[in-house]
């Protein structure tokens, strides 16, 4: 398979994830869409690593996975904290920080 196919698929998945972040308002689903975007980035990294023919891109992908795990932990902690304070789980209602 051409590397092009993988790159086009990766940009398609990234666009779908970005669209989800724009459409949905539940913080959990927004986190899921962030995962989609990070994974699209991972696919591009691994595809370019195959294109160049060395494994450095795959190491980047592993590090991106670590960062994604950290982001999930903090994001889900925030959601649990919001739920405990009986705040609405809707990003349009949580606008205290908006200028």
């Amino acid at each position: 398979m051409n590397i092009e196919w993988y790159i086009v698929l990766s940009s398609l998945l990234f666009a779908v994830g970005a669209m989800g972040i724009l459409i949905r308002r539940s913080p959990i689903v927004i986190l899921l869409c962030l995962e989609l975007m990070l994974n699209a980035g991972n696919l591009a990294l691994v595809a370019f690593s195959r294109m160049v023919g060395n494994e450095e891109g795959q190491v980047f992908a592993v590090i991106v996975m670590v960062v994604a795990a950290c982001e999930v932990v903090i994001g889900l902690g925030l959601i649990v904290a919001l739920y405990r304070r009986k705040l609405p789980l809707d990003v349009d209602e949580l606008r205290t920080l908006r200028g």
Binding site: L22, M51, V52, G53
Partner: peptide, 25 residues
């Protein structure tokens, strides 16, 4: 906006002069 992002990303990557993109690696 999502479709626009996809078109833009595709143009950015496929329009680059990476010759190895069209190969199997």
């Amino acid at each position: 906006l999502g479709a626009a992002l996809f078109v833009e990303l595709s143009i950015a990557v496929l329009g680059s002069s990476l010759l190895a993109l069209g190969t199997d690696g």
